[in-house]
Amino acid sequence: MMLTTTVSVVAPKILKELVAAGSVSSARVESGDKGLVIVVRAGMNERVLGAARGGLRYFQSLDGAASVLQSYGIMRFDVNTEHWVPKTMIRGYKQAPIVEDTE
């Protein structure tokens, strides 16, 4: 799990400028303290996408994070969902597949 207390945050406006300038070399979605976060690499620095009104921007679904990345023009990104449990799993809507031993 990422340590979100010591990360560098990039404001949405600044990220838009970095993407427009071609400075963003990679992006990924990973588990944060309160949900998924977007981490972008611009130059030698990695930064987490911030919320418009300060703090980190958290996502509760991969759809939401992917939609935001696409809105910035970022169509390729990595995903690491280690330590993240979708809310649908918590609520019991979807259960993890049951693997039966056939022997």
Score class of each variant (00 low, 15 high):
residue 11 A to R: 10
residue 11 A to I: 01
residue 12 P to T: 07
residue 12 P to H: 04
residue 13 K to A: 15
residue 14 I to M: 09
residue 14 I to F: 07
residue 14 I to E: 15
residue 15 L to E: 12
residue 15 L to M: 13
residue 16 K to D: 14
residue 16 K to I: 01
residue 16 K to C: 02
residue 16 K to P: 00
residue 17 E to P: 00
residue 17 E to R: 15
residue 18 L to C: 03
residue 19 V to Y: 06
residue 20 A to S: 13
residue 20 A to G: 03
residue 20 A to N: 08
residue 21 A to E: 14
residue 22 G to I: 05
residue 22 G to Q: 03
residue 23 S to N: 12
residue 23 S to W: 00
residue 23 S to A: 14
residue 23 S to M: 05
residue 23 S to T: 03
residue 25 S to W: 02
residue 25 S to C: 02
residue 26 S to Y: 01
residue 26 S to F: 00
residue 27 A to R: 03
residue 28 R to P: 01
residue 28 R to W: 00
residue 28 R to S: 00
residue 30 E to C: 15
residue 30 E to H: 04
residue 30 E to W: 00
residue 31 S to I: 02
residue 32 G to D: 09
residue 32 G to H: 11
residue 32 G to A: 13
residue 33 D to K: 09
residue 34 K to R: 15
residue 35 G to D: 06
residue 35 G to P: 07
residue 37 V to F: 04
residue 37 V to L: 09
residue 37 V to W: 04
residue 38 I to S: 01
residue 40 V to Y: 01
residue 40 V to K: 01
residue 41 R to E: 14
residue 41 R to T: 13
residue 41 R to V: 02
residue 42 A to K: 05
residue 42 A to W: 06
residue 45 N to C: 02
residue 45 N to K: 14
residue 46 E to L: 02
residue 46 E to V: 01
residue 48 V to W: 09
residue 48 V to E: 09
residue 48 V to A: 10
residue 49 L to T: 08
residue 51 A to W: 05
residue 51 A to C: 05
residue 53 R to I: 03
residue 53 R to L: 11
residue 53 R to K: 13
residue 53 R to N: 12
residue 54 G to H: 14
residue 55 G to A: 06
residue 55 G to Y: 14
residue 56 L to C: 10
residue 56 L to Y: 06
residue 57 R to Y: 07
residue 57 R to Q: 15
residue 57 R to E: 15
residue 57 R to W: 08
residue 58 Y to H: 08
residue 59 F to H: 08
residue 59 F to Q: 05
residue 59 F to M: 10
residue 60 Q to C: 01
residue 60 Q to Y: 10
residue 60 Q to F: 07
residue 61 S to I: 15
residue 61 S to M: 13
residue 62 L to H: 02
residue 63 D to E: 12
residue 64 G to V: 03
residue 64 G to Y: 08
residue 65 A to L: 05
residue 65 A to M: 06
residue 67 S to V: 08
residue 67 S to P: 05
residue 68 V to C: 02
residue 68 V to F: 00
residue 69 L to Y: 04
residue 70 Q to E: 13
residue 71 S to F: 03
residue 71 S to L: 07
residue 72 Y to F: 15
residue 73 G to D: 03
residue 74 I to V: 13
residue 75 M to I: 03
residue 75 M to W: 02
residue 75 M to S: 09
residue 76 R to F: 04
residue 76 R to M: 07
residue 76 R to K: 14
residue 76 R to H: 10
residue 77 F to R: 01
residue 77 F to K: 01
residue 79 V to D: 04
residue 80 N to H: 08
residue 80 N to M: 02
residue 80 N to G: 01
residue 81 T to G: 06
residue 81 T to A: 11
residue 81 T to W: 01
residue 82 E to V: 12
residue 83 H to T: 10
residue 84 W to K: 06
residue 84 W to Y: 15
residue 85 V to A: 09
residue 85 V to H: 06
residue 86 P to Y: 05
residue 86 P to H: 06
residue 87 K to R: 12
residue 88 T to M: 09
residue 89 M to C: 03
residue 89 M to H: 11
residue 89 M to A: 08
residue 90 I to G: 00
residue 91 R to W: 04
residue 91 R to I: 07
residue 91 R to C: 04
residue 92 G to H: 09
residue 92 G to S: 08
residue 92 G to I: 03
residue 92 G to Q: 09
residue 92 G to L: 07
residue 93 Y to E: 14
residue 93 Y to F: 04
residue 93 Y to R: 07
residue 94 K to H: 07
residue 94 K to Q: 14
residue 95 Q to V: 05
residue 95 Q to D: 12
residue 96 A to S: 09
